[in-house]
Design a protein around this nucleic acid. Structure first.
Lengths: 236, 236
DNA sequence: AGACACACGTGATAC
DNA sequence: TGTATCACGTGTGTC
């Protein structure tokens, strides 16, 4: 079905090119369409235009053909479908690139050889006491930059239909994990599973989300939410 | 120069769409070109064809526009140039992908100090390929020491009455996480909460346990269980 | 002027 | 049958 259609199209292109190669161009034009122009100059110009336009179409088809060649899994051989599939393919590759760049960023930022123990390993009781101490520190630090989300690295990748993966790292400050959880609480997301870990003075959080939302859109939402948390007084 | 050309083209498209939106289509056709067709049916068919063709061109231009949008560093706004740049861009991305695949292969087989990536952060395409590599490694390693618990670091701390915290790390091999879970299953512990994460080719596991058991005793139990898993043939 | 790029309408053709 | 796509020649516009 689609296969025959492809063959048809290429056959058409083939004949077109064959005409151009085998015939003298002026002959082809004059023999085809000489109902007008007793004037020789005008005829020449018209034929020039015709052959030029023909070459232009030929080039465009060749490029379209080449585009189809570099895109795998082309469904239909439509002109529009070719471009559409190319767009989708480019977007896939771009997603890959972004994810991997984010990973490399993480890789470079958190190059700590040894790995220390995690705050989350502290027992709940101790942590509550610790929190009270932190709160006192917070009273001092509210006007400073304690309890902010610092050195954030955020990447949102779409896994498959309806599933997004948010993976972020930031400096480990007091209540950073709590603040992160509050941020994701405020976004009202459909969280499939989430994981928060701290290692080498940084917090790593990974969240699987079920959503139709665009990944870039979600990313900006998270960024704005974190920005609002970092600076609650700013116009939001 | 190229900028004005772009604007020109988009203006043309704009007018084209405006015509389609503001006029009645049949009016547009008949008012434009009514030199033929005294027959009403034929005229209708012709106009249908005309509007259909117009929509087709419109769609194609939209797709071409979208293609231009996803391709960065577009030099000229030519139709042909757009497609050409898209092809070049795709080929660049494909090269990048190959390089990164090689990196991942190294990363997977060798030791990387830094801190890499959650496996789930890898894009889907790469993951499928990666999985195939993993499977191959598995086939080679089954008879050797793959799927063992290697380079284990284990600590058991008693938190307060009746609560122990096990925190361990080991190399990340195939099925390491599964094996770890099996170990803790076999110990019949009363697990409050557990967390497994992989970072920098290592697996980190933290388990909160409710037990009266002595922490050193639990530690030796875990060690022997892991030893038994690593060498099932030994007298256990 | 000439070269180039585009949109348009039209007929042919395949499903 | 009608509804898709396509190539073609042509007119129009810009550089």
């Amino acid at each position: 079905m689609g296969e025959e259609y492809q063959n048809l199209w290429e056959t058409k292109l083939f004949f077109q090119n064959e005409e151009l190669d085998s015939w003298t161009l002026d002959e082809a034009i004059s023999g085809y369409y000489d109902s007008s122009s007793p004037d020789g100059a005008a005829s020449s110009a018209a034929s020039k235009n015709i052959v030029s336009e023909r070459n232009r179409r030929k080039r465009l088809n060749e490029r379209l053909f080449a585009l189809r060649a570099v895109v795998p899994n082309i469904s239909k051989m439509d002109r529009a479908s070719i471009i559409k599939d190319a767009i989708n393919y480019i977007q896939e590759l771009q997603e890959q690139e972004r994810g991997i760049q984010a990973e490399i960023l993480e890789l470079e930022s958190g190059k700590s050889t040894g790995f220390d123990v995690f705050e989350q390993d502290l027992p709940v009781l101790l942590r509550s006491k610790k929190k009270r101490i932190d709160d006192r520190c917070c009273d001092f630090g509210r006007s400073r930059n304690i309890s902010r989300i610092e050195e954030l690295e955020l990447s949102v990748t779409s896994m498959r239909e309806k599933t997004l993966v948010v993976s972020l790292t930031c400096r480990k400050r007091t209540d950073t994990m709590v603040k992160l959880c509050e941020v994701f609480e405020s976004l009202r997301l459909k969280i499939i599973t989430a994981n928060v870990t701290t290692v080498s003075e940084r917090v790593l959080k990974t969240v699987f989300i079920e959503a139709d939302e665009d990944k870039d859109h979600l990313k900006t939402r998270i960024e704005t939410a974190i920005a609002a948390l970092n600076d609650p007084l700013s116009p939001m």
